[in-house]
Write a protein that binds this DNA or RNA. Structure first.
Lengths: 242, 242
DNA sequence: ATTGACTCTAACGTAACGTTATCGTTTATG
DNA sequence: CATAAACGATAACGTTACGTTAGAGTCAAT
């Protein structure tokens, strides 16, 4: 058989057969005087074996070793490989979980309305406005301020939020699972639900973000060192309890 | 921060950072006159993000695209990627099956039909056939599909059984008498009755064999440690309740 | 001044082919 | 019989994400 026939028959490319020849994995039975590769059924069979091992993920080098060495313990090789596959699979499972969590988290974040987004960046009435200006530039702060202002006119949300921040900061050294903490974090939950709709999961995810996103962390901790972490923990407990 | 500090901090090699710099994925904030790369917290943060995406399996090119393009929809990207991972996992599952069968075959415990040999090449019923075609070429996929088709019925069964194995494995640490366990074991009973006719007694006996015959045990436990025992118990309870 | 720790660029190596590019061979057809 | 289509061959670069030398400069401490 000529090369293309073999290739078509088993579903690999001609290039692949060239390659296998080059690395000595599968040599044609002979070549014509013109240099054409000629294969026989024996090669076909070997090719099938190669494909099998390839399918289950062996690298070509090992396939060659296995097929060339009749004393090689096939079963052992397969079993070892099986374990590698199992490990790989659980690795994928981990990835899947991580992705899932992140999607959740990101969705929670997206649920956040503009109002809340800006609530976190409101410097207008705090003494660090100057610093903020230096840090993020005048435009950014001015813009934030403008947005906030318009929100303030609409409602006193910011005020309420800040109050609550303060009341949370007061107890930030207590147990996040304590009654008082859970009660105030419950208020927080209610408050956020004035803005958008929060599932408990999203709420929990939001709490994580308070700590993981340093911008949020900084902003919240301005009401008291460690407040962000405290809130995250309390929010998680709150969410888990529903 | 100098390069080694960053590298040690996040657990990557210096070479990796060089590489990221070279491909424009992560550039140092500036370089000293001696050419030393200097990083700041901003770069650290970006690096964390890079590592996250890497961990869930994105190629660097896409990571760059995602991080550089603020309009890129993260969630969508993640969800697409999740599906690819799922597909990959099911391919691994197929490999595992094939390997397992081959091991047993080699041991003279089972004979492998052509079907299983080709099971790994089946892309026909998954949404990534297009990718497979691009990857392996049209002919290869068509051929595989053809082979598979004739064996499809059996394959479906196999597939269904594996799915159920997995779903059972998920709850294998629960009480075998629980509703969920009994419900899924009921599905198992139905499934087996597609093959032959099983009396409740025979069903119960089969469960015992899952544990007593190590070949079965191994095979089943590959879906989760302890699954065979769990199934035996659940099957016994199921049978006794009829 | 020397030493040790650190940094730099450059460049080859890895796995398994895909993809041109250029050219020779075989076969079918006008 | 000449020519084109189909097929075959070799050669060599491209791909992914760095690891691994190799040779040489830089910085801080002794």
């Amino acid at each position: 058989m000529q090369i293309k026939e073999v290739a078509d028959l088993v579903g690999v490319s001609v290039r692949t057969l060239h390659h296998y020849d080059a690395i000595g994995l599968l040599k044609p039975e002979h070549t014509t005087e013109a240099g054409y590769r000629i294969y026989t059924d024996d090669e076909l069979e070997r090719l099938q074996q190669i494909l099998f091992y390839k399918e289950v993920g062996f690298p070509l080098k090992k396939i060659k070793a296995i097929l060339d060495n009749p004393t090689f313990d096939q079963v052992e090789a397969l079993e070892k490989h099986r374990e590698r596959l199992l490990a790989k699979r659980s690795q994928i499972d981990t990835m899947l979980e991580t992705i899932q969590k992140t999607i959740q988290h990101t969705k929670g974040e997206m649920n956040m309305s503009n109002k809340e987004r800006f609530a976190g960046f409101d410097f207008s009435n705090n003494p660090y406005e100057q610093e903020a200006r230096e840090r993020w530039g005048n435009e950014a702060v001015d813009k934030a301020n403008a947005k906030i202002k318009q929100l303030k006119d609409e409602e006193n949300l910011q005020q309420t939020m800040n109050d609550l921040y303060r009341r949370l900061a007061q107890i930030r050294n207590e147990d996040p699972a304590s009654d008082i903490a859970q009660q105030r974090i419950g208020e927080w939950y209610q408050l956020l639900n004035h803005i958008g709709t929060y599932s408990y999961d999203a709420f929990k995810g939001l709490g994580k973000m308070y700590v993981e996103d340093e911008r949020f962390q900084r902003n919240i901790d301005q009401f008291g060192e460690g407040l962000a972490i405290f809130m995250r923990d309390a929010m998680a407990i709150y969410a888990d309890h529903r």
